[in-house]
Design a protein around this nucleic acid. Sequence first.
DNA 1: TGGAGGTATCATTTTAACTGATACTAACGG
DNA 2: CCGTTAGTATCAGTTAAAATGATACCTCCA
Lengths: 281, 281
Amino acid sequence: MESHDLLIFKQVAERQSVSKAAENLGYVQSNISQRIKSLEDELGAKLFVRNNRGVTLTDKGTTLLDYANRILLLLDEAKSAFNPQKWRETLTIGAPQTISAFKVPQLFSLFLKKHKNMDVKVRTSDKQSLQDMLYYGELDGLFVHGPYDEGRLESVYSYEQNIVLIAPEKWELETPYNQTLIVNSFTSCSYRDALLHYSESNHFYDPTILEFDTLESILQAVQNGLGISILPEDVLNSRKELSPIECKKLSEGIKINFVVKQRKYQPHVLKKFISFLWESS
Amino acid sequence: MESHDLLIFKQVAERQSVSKAAENLGYVQSNISQRIKSLEDELGAKLFVRNNRGVTLTDKGTTLLDYANRILLLLDEAKSAFNPQKWRETLTIGAPQTISAFKVPQLFSLFLKKHKNMDVKVRTSDKQSLQDMLYYGELDGLFVHGPYDEGRLESVYSYEQNIVLIAPEKWELETPYNQTLIVNSFTSCSYRDALLHYSESNHFYDPTILEFDTLESILQAVQNGLGISILPEDVLNSRKELSPIECKKLSEGIKINFVVKQRKYQPHVLKKFISFLWESS
DNA sequence: TGGAGGTATCATTTTAACTGATACTAACGG
DNA sequence: CCGTTAGTATCAGTTAAAATGATACCTCCA
């Protein structure tokens, strides 16, 4: 069992797929199949259960993944103990305000704990600009909700973001009259859609639409009793001081994709970050 | 940088020699040379200083050795998390009383901390029996002082054992008359020689020779004022309760060899133990 | 001055990793 | 119920990397 076997194993375990792991590592699927097989033979234990939608870890596999993570982390640390400047690369990630406000700082702080030799940057902007920046190489990757340019960009990771409806104190959430919907202009349509959807399903009658372009202004507006809006649950949780606000968790989440430019060779830092996303999920 | 590179590196670092490491790992010297070179190239740092009696670690090499030890230990642990019964092997080591009394338990306790999945045994006896036992496969290895059957056994590790002269309280160590030398019958000649050598260099006149066959009896004899003797420093330090005894450190130590049977493939546990000896020196 | 004991280099061989093509399996849609 | 899709397994063949063997080279020491 060599460290490279563990790298392959880790990738398969995290992607829960032999072929995805192969693609990601730049190998052909059959190779990964074989190497996992020989690893299993060597250890004398099945590491994965093969179900036809991919593979999932067995108990023993979980044990090994834990070791693999520890070993590979140490290996990385050892490498970066040499040539520090050579490895000190910058990762630049784009995100809309709702994500850059809470999720990204949280992720980065965990990421930097593991990879001390990297610099990270966030660029907050609207979806179109971010996509352009990504395409022109100013960003390494990008968090988006909703559709994106699938011709040139590809999603390498995604997760569900819980969202909550927020309203001023004592607001009558279900009353169909005199409702004001506060939407943001910075997250294209997902949040707006979710809000409109809520509006419709409660048969709101001709609600007023207020649009703001920063997260702060929306929060202010709700606090001042202007109307209701929708935000990621995380953002709200991180601002406990923001009561007096009523909030209501919505059953449907929003799917958030981490997208990158389509290309064969990703920069080292980006690979690390993607791998980190899968690890921490 | 793969774990196998680290294994090779570790071996070279511990033996301070490319060729010794090669021999030990069952490779040819040129291969190890090349792999160390390519490891250095990869990390962009010299790991060893080549002096014509071998190689020694640079500062960066020391850093890497630390990582290598941690990584390889984790790898071993991961392996032994599988097939526990298969890997639970027994290591049987022979030693004369003077070594089995202190050095061996100390070594074993450290060894078992690192390799939790092994059993260890000590066999204490006289040199000739131990050599026979080793040759007939009842022992994996053997600590000896002084000469051993070099035709059939080979030394794979050695160290210097400090020795001290012990005497009853208020004994006149330099007086040449009426001295009694207490020798042991269980460590062939090294200790006896050291004692006789001391006797001669102090021009002792016709000293009495007392022979005992256990460590305990010698200690008792000295405590009871019978005469002087010689013991490993360690043994004495571990028995602080044994004063009233005078002791005097001698400048010359005794060379102790760890010897094994000459053969191409050593059992896994033995390899681990030998590696451990080099590591901890 | 040449032998002993060590490392480095390089052309060649061997081994293990990787590829590409194909077979197999289960779910999914019509 | 049959073809399509999305996955894994197998296997013969290729490629790349590691290991070898021979040789060069250095330094100490007798």
